[in-house]
Simulated assay, not measured.
Amino acid sequence: MTNAIGVQRATAVELREVTREYGGKHARVCALDGVSLAFPQGTWTAVMGPSGSGKSTLLHCAAGLEHVSSGQVFLAGEDITAASDRELTDLRRREIGFVFQSFNLIGSLTAEQNVALPLKLSGHRVSKKDVRAVLSGVGLADRMRHRPRELSGGQQQRVAIARAMVTRPAVLFADEPTGALDSTSARTVLGLLRQMVDTAGQTIVMVTHDPAAAACADSVVFLSDGRIVDRAVAPSAREVADRLAALEA
């Protein structure tokens, strides 16, 4: 991808002719069918499609959560296609952040402790300064010692984003990050993601069913039956909704 002044961006994640199949030879399901797709550094890509189109499978394969049946996956310039589970776990801890619809916070830990958890699990020294800085960056400087039950849904999602970002990952994968939020909280979270791309150069790959959320991204990729069938650059929410409706018709 080339930006507005003609500078070629490096690629953060790339799938080359990726196929992912499930089941045996008599009941085989092809979730991804020869998908080739590159996610440039410092960009936000939304992935959309009807139910069963392969959105989550694409996200999981790109993040190294699932092995592909054929093809190649490159993450941060490294071919992870044949990596072992241990190698993939180490790579994910170093290069990837995850944000999910369900937040996945630990209820007995404070916001500060939840954010510090990935650092502890990877054996890194936990810097309270870094943890507090990332929480301040998501607007929660005054909520660091609150537990999840003391936070709103939007605040919990912002803690989850801070937790994903504390290791400074090459790519942030988001699976329906606003799906459990009210409209006001969703706008806040989407604004935060936009800021991370524009000011920090973060790369984001987001699966969503919400046209308004997808319209916040730089580009949208549409899947159907495991294949890329459409793309849009900086579309409006109406354009996204119309294209999605055409696929579901």
Rank of each mutant, 00 (worst) to 15 (best):
F222L: 10
H60S: 12
G153D: 07
V131E: 06
R187M: 09
G71E: 00
I80D: 10
G226H: 03
N3R: 00
Q157C: 06
A186Y: 14
R238S: 12
A38F: 06
L91A: 15
G24M: 11
T178K: 00
T167P: 10
L190M: 07
V115S: 03
M1N: 12
A62K: 01
A46H: 07
M165G: 09
R168W: 08
P118M: 02
L37H: 09
R145K: 13
R227N: 05
V18A: 04
V131I: 03
L121Y: 07
Y22M: 14
G24S: 15
K25W: 15
R145F: 14
G107A: 06
P50Q: 04
R147Q: 08
I228E: 01
L223H: 07
N114G: 07
G179E: 03
V220W: 05
G139P: 06
G64K: 04
T89I: 13
A170H: 00
D175E: 07
A31Y: 01
V240E: 06
R187K: 11
A246S: 04
C30D: 08
G54I: 02
M206C: 09
V7P: 14
V233M: 15
K120D: 14
S127W: 01
D198L: 15
L135T: 07
R168S: 08
G6W: 03
D130R: 13
F74I: 05
V68Q: 04
R158S: 13
A186R: 12
F74M: 11
T188W: 09
K129Q: 14
A246P: 05
G226T: 02
L75T: 06
A162D: 09
L59R: 04
M144W: 08
D230P: 04
A237K: 04
S152R: 14
F98M: 06
F100V: 09
R243V: 09
A237R: 04
V221F: 11
G64Q: 03
A31T: 10
S122L: 10
I80A: 12
L181T: 01
R86P: 10
H60E: 10
A4P: 15
A133E: 05
A164F: 07
R16I: 14
A63D: 03
D218C: 15
A83P: 11
A186S: 11
V159K: 00
F222M: 11
T110C: 13
A186G: 09
R93L: 04
I5F: 15
W44A: 05
Q113W: 12
V47L: 04
D79A: 06
E176W: 03
S152C: 12
Q113Y: 11
F173N: 03
I96Q: 10
S53K: 03
L32S: 11
R227L: 07
D218A: 12
M165V: 06
V189E: 06
V221L: 15
E95H: 01
R92D: 00
S51H: 07
S236I: 02
E112T: 11
Q156N: 15
R149L: 13
A62H: 07
I228R: 09
V13A: 01
P211D: 12
A213I: 01
L193S: 12
F173G: 05
S84Q: 02
E112C: 12
